[in-house]
Design a protein around this nucleic acid. Sequence first.
DNA 1: GAGTGGTCTAGACCACGTC
DNA 2: ACGTGGTCTAGACCACTCA
Lengths: 250, 250
Amino acid sequence: MEPVYATLARRLRGEITSGTYEPGTFLPSEAALAGAQNVSRSTVRRALDELVAQGLVIAHNGRGHQVRRVARLVWRACEPEIGDGDGPAPSDSWSRSVRAQGFEPSETITAEIGYADEPIARWLDLPIGEAVAIRRRLRFVDGAPSSIADSYYPRTIVKGTEIEEPADVQPGVYAVFAKLGREWVRTRDRWTARPPTREETAVLAIPRGVAVAEIARRSFDREGVPVRLSLFVLPGDRHEVEYDHWEVIA
Amino acid sequence: MEPVYATLARRLRGEITSGTYEPGTFLPSEAALAGAQNVSRSTVRRALDELVAQGLVIAHNGRGHQVRRVARLVWRACEPEIGDGDGPAPSDSWSRSVRAQGFEPSETITAEIGYADEPIARWLDLPIGEAVAIRRRLRFVDGAPSSIADSYYPRTIVKGTEIEEPADVQPGVYAVFAKLGREWVRTRDRWTARPPTREETAVLAIPRGVAVAEIARRSFDREGVPVRLSLFVLPGDRHEVEYDHWEVIA
DNA sequence: GAGTGGTCTAGACCACGTC
DNA sequence: ACGTGGTCTAGACCACTCA
């Protein structure tokens, strides 16, 4: 037999999708639901946690559980970045895409010099501890934190360039690499779904139980050497990702 | 201050990654941990749930929490399927990829005729209720259920072909479409991270808290008409997905 | 039968938001 | 001050595994 919390979750989900609870309104409080369904508050919470994890409601401490207006952002991850700016400039492919979907994009950029730890070193094919330039982007949609996009560049390549400055790079990071003769010609994305870290939960305001998609994107120059690593963290409750590919007719 | 369960989870995570608990061995029981840490069993469970969600341990009912041997399968989602078989045949790109990583692939196929519900109809650009041929695949790795790969074909196209039979299609589904002059030339993947449904949890033996990646793959013929929809469900604790793309030099 | 995890209860205290 | 969700406790019963 199905557990009680699952039944309750299913019923509430039905009432939300059928419109009994409109988007923006609040569900009855946990205590009220517990009383009405004649179950304990813990059981109600377990059901509500399920809805939160599915992105159907938002839990507001001190206020209640609010039915969410579901609006997933689609990111066309295969769009070429060549010629893009790298920041809040209108030419940025991410900003353009967000704007095209009717939202207002913005981002904060910080730059620092760091040293490659294990995963970074492995992705960039560098020795552990090698110096890397790091550009951290926190992306906002309509003012709310939306995703993380951190890039790592081997310092042997980008030392002294504007990539190490915490400002928008114009006309784009790609142009800098092209001038160095190290522009990338191939990109490889590796991604998975995982629970967020504690830090990501805090920075991106990720509700409990919601998973993130992590994309590790490596860009390779003509020699096949990785010249850039970008790590994207996209909360699953507000993001979809799209890839186009054409069949290679042999 | 950090909650108690988070601290406990972090400590246990450290002991696992540092080798105090070897892969394959069992953690102390919930009751033992509760006693040793002087917290309640609920708090211990919350910490353990976190490790389960991260794929670090497996909870066995009646036995205990086992430290997991982490082995993620990488799926190169952009590999062309042209010329592939469609099933357990060695030519299948998925089987080949699994075997290349040192595991033994297998799958079960069932075929049925159904009617497009809302999401299916939208993806395939069909009216709701339109007849579709469905091929459901359950994929196994080393005998354990690993992922779901269900394909939907408009019956107006595939009626009477071997695609409607619950057997391996040789030399491949693509060949059947090519014979009909409706072979696909472009594929578009849309994916997101979400919690598994109850059914997926049961079929794929997904531990609590683990998210799945769902990929909706549409294949389009020369006219740009979607001729196939494949829905992939990949549990995040055992899958990574890889995409290659080349920059389009304008 | 003893020990394990899975579910559920009843109650407590706290931080937070609103009035 | 009050009601909300977030955390935690102590205890219960069940299904399951293994000796």
